[in-house]
């Protein structure tokens, strides 16, 4: 119960802070819209209306990853800048309970972008999304957001030793857009890319959202997406324990 309170309030505080940041809030919504606009023009010129729906859903989910990749990768560095990293690490609760709500708050900002992209597609390009399984859609979206936030948690821990971790997150933005099948079917990518795609939660989340909207069996994809997210958290906690032990032993938490 105590852990859930830490997670819940941590999420609320960080989500509120991010919505007031021009970079984390406004730009996270606008940035994928630029790419969505280009993609909509490309698919519209292609003349296949079904692909336009495919692109609208993919572009909408792209924003969830965009909202997560840079802010989550740099979450610990941001805490360093604010001078609170040592205090947060020293709190009695496990540090993962402090960090996880931060990264899930970043991916939750992507919900703004998801909604904005769907509305942009509808009003600017006349794309009406079908909704074959509305309840599954309502389940798939939060599951994808949480799973992406969990992947962000793993990134945040993995990049703890990098002073410029935001740049690492920025470099990962396009590759994940590409290999998770947001705008390009996985079947078009080289064979060796597919196992990497399958190991990424956003791939399954994207599948689930598409099948919930366009028809199919979304629930297994939702389950895989969420299970992968839990796997990222487990790996992140193990890595975090090791990193914190090393930082305490060598007094390198501040990276100064």
């Amino acid at each position: 119960m105590h852990a859930l309170r830490v997670l819940g309030w941590g999420w609320v505080f960080h989500a509120k802070m991010m919505t007031r940041s021009a970079f984390d809030g406004l730009l996270a919504v606008l940035w994928p819209l630029f790419f969505a606009t280009v993609a909509f023009f490309m698919f519209r010129n292609g003349g296949n209306p079904e692909l336009l729906v495919y692109a609208a859903l993919g572009a909408a989910v792209m924003g969830v990853w965009t909202a997560t990749s840079v802010p989550a990768s740099s979450a610990l560095q941001r805490a360093r800048w604010h001078g609170v990293l040592e205090l947060l690490v020293a709190t009695p609760v496990h540090f993962s309970l402090v960090l996880l709500p931060v990264t899930i708050a970043t991916s939750a900002i992507g919900l703004y972008c998801l909604a904005a992209t769907i509305l942009w597609g509808k009003f600017a390009f006349g794309i009406d999304l079908p909704m074959e399984h509305p309840f599954a859609f309502a389940l798939a979206v939060p599951a994808t957001v949480i799973s992406v936030g969990m992947l962000g948690f793993l990134l945040a821990v993995a990049f703890v030793r990098f002073r410029r971790s935001w740049a690492m997150g920025a470099v990962l933005e396009y590759p994940v857009w590409l290999i998770c099948g947001f705008l390009v079917p996985l079947s078009l990518l080289p064979d060796w890319v597919r196992p990497i795609s399958w190991a990424l939660g956003p791939t399954w989340g994207m599948n689930a959202i598409r099948q919930a909207s366009m028809g199919g069996t979304p629930l297994p994809d939702v389950a895989i997406c969420f299970a992968l997210g839990l796997g990222y958290v487990a790996a992140g906690v193990l890595m975090l324990n090791s990193v914190l032990r090393s930082a305490r032993e060598h007094a390198t938490l501040a990276l100064t």
């Binding site: 292609g46 296949n48 692909l51 705008l183």
Partner: peptide, 8 residues
């Protein structure tokens, strides 16, 4: 790859 998908 988007171009290949859209066949443009």
């Amino acid at each position: 790859y988007i171009g290949r998908t859209a066949k443009l």
